[in-house]
Write a protein that binds this DNA or RNA. Structure first.
Lengths: 163, 163
DNA sequence: TAGCTAACTTCTGAAAGCGTAAGTCAGCTG
DNA sequence: CAGCTGACTTACGCTTTCAGAAGTTAGCTA
């Protein structure tokens, strides 16, 4: 632990990136809908059925994720069908893959059955399984124990008893 | 998208690693408590205060995370004080860092203020900021678009209308 | 123009999550 | 042994999350 953590009570978490992310995807169903989006699901009914949730929940989450910009509602038309709308990942949504990969990886390691995990993510070029790794901006691999938390440029300090 | 995804409806998600992980840390408060644990928080009251939640919520989550094995309750004694208990990360809990890093990174990219993020994770050896990266088991860096989902060894196939 | 279907919305009600406030408890200090 | 303190637990009520079932809508097909 470094010294900065001793003044942890002076940190405001008002602009915490983790908390802000969780305001968007902080429910179980939102994360599972994002999982399905990465599996390729696009249509309303498929989201509800494959995530295993009711239609009201699917409707609410899809609307929130669309409003937050992780998904976009795009029109499509199958031959002989009326125009319908599909929910597809935006760049903001695709950028969410590392979160899901990290969740999957932790579950694979600590909560999987003996047979192994049901799905694997692979590298398109070589077919090898993909995992998440921590790396520093100088290009070093960072084992989990070699990372430490530091104050960032946006840190707001408050008197120890303020919100 | 690969062909396997066309049979997505035949996949059972009964043993989905993401869903299993979310059964343990699928609430906003559980994830924020894990964040605090990585910041170095150990004591009950500090968790409640720093996460900004009530004591009942802190109690429930700490109990769940302890039961799930991400935290352990260890006795400690400050001089002249009675024995108390601290909640500290186990290996299973420390292994959760990539999830929080990924959430933080997404928030830093897509939801941060102009000043930048409040906290930075750094590499102990060189001080450079740490980020999460996708890499395949052959050692290649994997851009987000170059990853695809494939069936894993534990995949359970069901008739398309079963749970 | 009546039927059909995907894609919703609305209604109802149960369960979970949460904060505030008020306890309880154990063991050290005076 | 009375007071104190950190670490909880209990009680209460509000809000959110969720499923199931039923209703609605738009536009293609017959």
């Amino acid at each position: 632990m470094n010294d900065l953590l001793k003044e942890r009570d002076a940190w405001s978490m008002a602009n915490c990136s983790i908390a802000r992310t969780l305001e968007i995807v902080g429910t179980r169903t939102a994360l599972l809908i994002m999982r399905e989006a990465f599996f390729g699901t696009r249509r309303f009914d498929d989201f509800a059925k494959r995530v295993g949730i009711g239609e009201p929940a699917a409707s609410t989450r899809l609307k929130e994720l669309t409003a937050a910009g992780l998904l976009e509602r795009v029109p499509y038309q199958e031959p002989g069908q009326r125009t319908r709308y599909a929910y597809q990942l935006t760049q903001k949504g695709r950028d969410f893959l590392p979160v899901l990969s990290a969740l999957r990886q932790w579950g694979d390691t600590w909560a999987a059955d003996e047979q192994g995990p049901p799905v694997v993510v692979r590298h398109e070029n070589c077919g090898a399984p993909v995992h998440v790794a921590l790396r520093c901006d100088d290009g070093h691999d960072v084992p989990i124990g070699d990372a430490f938390v530091d104050a960032g440029p946006g840190l707001i300090r408050v008197s120890p008893d303020s919100p």
